[in-house]
Design a binder for these strands. Structure first.
Lengths: 134, 134
DNA sequence: ATATCTGCAAAAGATTTGCAAGGAG
DNA sequence: CTCCTTGCAAATCTTTTGCAGATAT
């Protein structure tokens, strides 16, 4: 895998963002420094990164677009069905959650490499907003 | 919500399938009895059904397409990265898993309506196939 | 030097929108 | 009878593919 200015910029942008950006959003961010970078390069680079486990790709909520996360440690994602924001839920104890999930799997016959937990609901801002309007 | 032959056919097809079909797949199935049904009708009907909680929509694995599930009870989905099959993992104790997940959420500030647990790995057939080739 | 990566353009795939005709309530 | 639903077509959005030139190693 080659190290290019584009790839470094993509990784930097993803690391800097806590927003689980879509490909399009990453494109926007990287263009600030690399005006000529193509969307295609974003797609291919992220695909490469995912292949070597540098980043995590997922789809959440009612938006069928890939989102990327620089943080590959196990954690929970929350999708706000009001504003669309995706937030991390970092728990001290994701291990216990993973354990409980693995315990529910009949085992032996199938293999599990990756566990994604997605919650859908309202983020704290949207809960607050609703409370004010009530 | 109106009851039409098309909608009944869509619900029947979805109920009959344990494959978590995509919109395109549902279209194929329903066309057996309703050759003239349009893809658009499938989209709109499923959207309506989801709105009233009749079906569950999700996206899993590396295929960015909506999948639908007639079974709206909480359960785990497993995606096979080899063959693409999506299977249900019905555990007696999804309640315990849900409990453990809710316990990990800091609470009060955000709302959780729905919990999706997605596993990625190999299905039993693909595990067997690999074992035979080894 | 050479295999990989980039950027452009086009193709492919998935979902949504607009509208006129049809059918359920 | 009226409003919701259907089917068609086109538009939009997202992702993939093909290829020629550039570049990291």
């Amino acid at each position: 895998m080659r190290v290019t200015p584009q790839r470094l910029a993509i990784l930097d942008a993803l690391r800097a963002s806590r927003q689980h950006p879509t490909v399009e959003e990453i494109h926007e961010m990287v263009r600030a420094d690399h005006p000529a970078i193509s969307l295609n390069t974003i797609y291919k680079s992220l695909d490469t990164f995912e292949g070597v486990g540098l980043v995590h790709r997922f789809v959440i909520g009612d938006r069928a677009s890939y989102r990327y996360d620089f943080d590959t440690r196990g954690h929970i994602h929350h999708y706000c069905r009001q504003c669309g924001k995706v937030s991390d839920i970092h728990t001290e104890d994701f291990g216990a959650v993973a354990e409980s999930i693995r315990g529910a799997v009949p085992g032996e016959c199938l293999e599990v490499d990756q566990i994604d937990v997605h919650l859908v609901g309202l983020c704290s801002e949207c809960v607050d907003a609703r409370r004010e309007n009530a």
